[in-house]
Design a protein around this nucleic acid. Sequence first.
DNA 1: GACGGCTCCAAA
DNA 2: AACTTTTGGAGCCGTC
Length: 571
Amino acid sequence: MFLVVASHPNGVLLSAVDERGAPVGEPRPVPLAEFPVEVSRLEFGSEQRDRPRWVWDDTTSWYPRLLAAGVRVERCVDLRLSHAILRNSELTAMTDLARSERNGWDEPAPQERVGSRDGFRSSGEGLFDLESEPGAVPAATDPVAEFRLQRGAIAASADPGRIGLLLAAESAGALVAAEMQFAGLPWRADLHERLLADMLGPRPQPGERPAKLAAVLERVRIALDAPDLNPDSPADLIKSLKRAGLMVTTTRSWELKKLSHPAIEPLLEYKKLSRLLSANGWHWLDTNVHGGRFRPDYVVGGVVTGRWASKGGGGALQLPKQVRGAVVADPGWKLVVADASQLEPRILAALSGDRAMAEAGQAKDMYAAIVASGAVATRDKAKVAMLGAMYGATTGESGRLMPALTKAYPRAIGLVESAARAGERGDIVTTRLGRSSPRPGGTWGDVQAAAYGDAATDADASRARGQARSWGRFTRNFVVQGSAAEWALCWMATLRGSLRELGGKAWLTDAPHLVFFLHDEIVVHSPASMTDAVVAAIESAATEAGRLLFGETPVEFPLSIAVVDSYADAK
DNA sequence: GACGGCTCCAAA
DNA sequence: AACTTTTGGAGCCGTC
């Protein structure tokens, strides 16, 4: 049974529908204040198979409030995320949904307001009133009608099983994202402060440089004889370096490292400290860590490939190793940190069905197995060659290794090569479960057409070629990165279910729960007494993810798992 | 003063 | 040793 949730003048309208979206009985209004209680009643009063699947426009609009009221749901359908996939997927290209005019469902989700960082809506009575701001959001479209359209598209698709799994995983991901934001990543502000003090000196007055940063800058200025140097201005820095006899055209750290001059060592130190200050300094700490928790805004499906993005919160995409020491489990709790080893090459092996590569993909260390098979000479070469295959490198060592890799793994390399060719033609490519790449936009077609026109110059042709190859590198990577993102979603969605069972009747944050996710890595915050069970759940979820995506495949998806107090101690 | 482009660095 | 993918964010700097 599906229960469609919609805003209603007097609260919420609940419409029961069947798996095709056909109404079952009359829609039922529920006063806003009673909505969480009603959800709770239906979730907990039912056997698992009778629990409703909640259908709503955006998980971000409904679920944080439910969590704040102490209510979790087991399953949902996020209509907007699903719509985006169905709109673009090659598997549903011929359906009514994909052929319909663009509408409100193609618009981005309404922005969260003040306070979203804490998983709460800003105002008390305006709980679900996002659409009430005139002009802020396109006219609300009937979620029941949209659900019916989506179910029709799935049923009519070339592979309902794959696309259905993808939509289920995407929606489960939306629940996980809301729950992780609600729970937050344990963050010890005191340890973070200590780390900053050690590296930068005491917290400075606003507008002042921290003492250690100022000191190291002074050494740079003396070494370059440039008392007024602004080290944050690349132009100014290059000018001063040139005056000191260093012929540089860029101020990138790895370029500067090659130089030998008394100014270089303090300059690199300045860059490192300056980065720490601006990215994860006191200001970041003050704005992003509250009550011992860091709560990034995860944006499910925020990346074209299906990876998650993050917004505000300083960006969760990079928690530099430097500050991970501040991520510490609560007393009596542990962090269980797990990451999928060499995920993308394994995905490629399973995706392509290349027997030789799949055999290498059975090993704990896939790169070592590639060496053992005789394809390349060293582990470093194996790694660089695989990365080159997935990213489309043409030059350097990586480019030189491609022929050997192609010889050893013709089907696997054939898969990424054909994805690249598709992109160069302007065609779309599709992941394992059915997420398709966008078509090249903007002036792409014009530039390509210009190269074939009568008036085409060499410059036109070379510009078109470069642009086509660039898009080909994107589509090449899309199939692997996107399929890996699907594996990770299935892994996490499965794990979420196992952790719910482990927790029994305990509330989300009183039992093992997910607190962080980044592409191929997860962190679970768990009572110390339960970590063995958590580790087992994480491992079996990884096996299940492989099975869901690929069925029977020889490829293994091994994890490296650490049970630690501090994130800094993982790997 | 706002805004966009650019450079640099961080993550996978 | 460099070099290819997807991102977010800070700061600088020129333009409007």
